[in-house]
Amino acid sequence: MANDTFEPKIVGFLCNWCSYRAADLAGTARIKYSPNVRIIRVMCSGRVDPTFVLKALALGADGVMIAGCHPGECHYIEQNYKAMRRYYMLKHMLRALGLEEDRIRLVWASAAEGQQLAEHIDKFVEDVRKLGPLNWPANWQENGERLHAVEAIAKEHEESLEVLP
C-alpha cells in the first residue's frame, strides 16, 4: 500500500572502506537525501551476517540496505562477492517467509561516490515506501514474544550445531 505519510525505517549496513566513506563524502558535499536510512558501520560487506538483516526486520525495520565496495574493489580483495551470494540467499529466505524480497537491497558505492550512494538511498526509501510498513514485529506483539522469538531462532540454530568437546 502506498502511503504518503508512512516514513519507512531502514537500517543500512555500510562497509568501512568504501560505502561508509561515500556516506561521509555525501555529507562533506552537503548532498541532501532521505533521513530514513540509519547507518551501521561494518568492516566489510562480507561481515553482514544474514541474521543481522533478519534481526533488523524483526525489530521493526521496513527495509535493510547493504552497501559495499564495487566488485573487485573490496578492501579485503573479494569479500563483497561473498556478500553478494548471501544477499541472493537472503532474498530466497524472505520469499520463503512470505515477505517481499525487495525489502532488502545490495548496492555498491566507492569512497568517491557520495552522490551515487545518496541516489541509491533515495530510490530505496521510495521503493520501500511503496511496499508499505512491514509490521513484522506487530505479529509477535500480539503474543508479547517479539524479541524472544527472534532470539530463539538464533539460539536453536546454534544448539542444533553444538558439538560435544
Binding site: V42, G46, Y76
Partner: peptide, 9 residues
C-alpha cells in the same frame, strides 16, 4: 585483517 567474513559464515 579483520574483515569479519568468516565470522558471518
Amino acid at each position: 585483517k579483520g574483515c569479519g567474513t568468516c565470522v558471518a559464515a
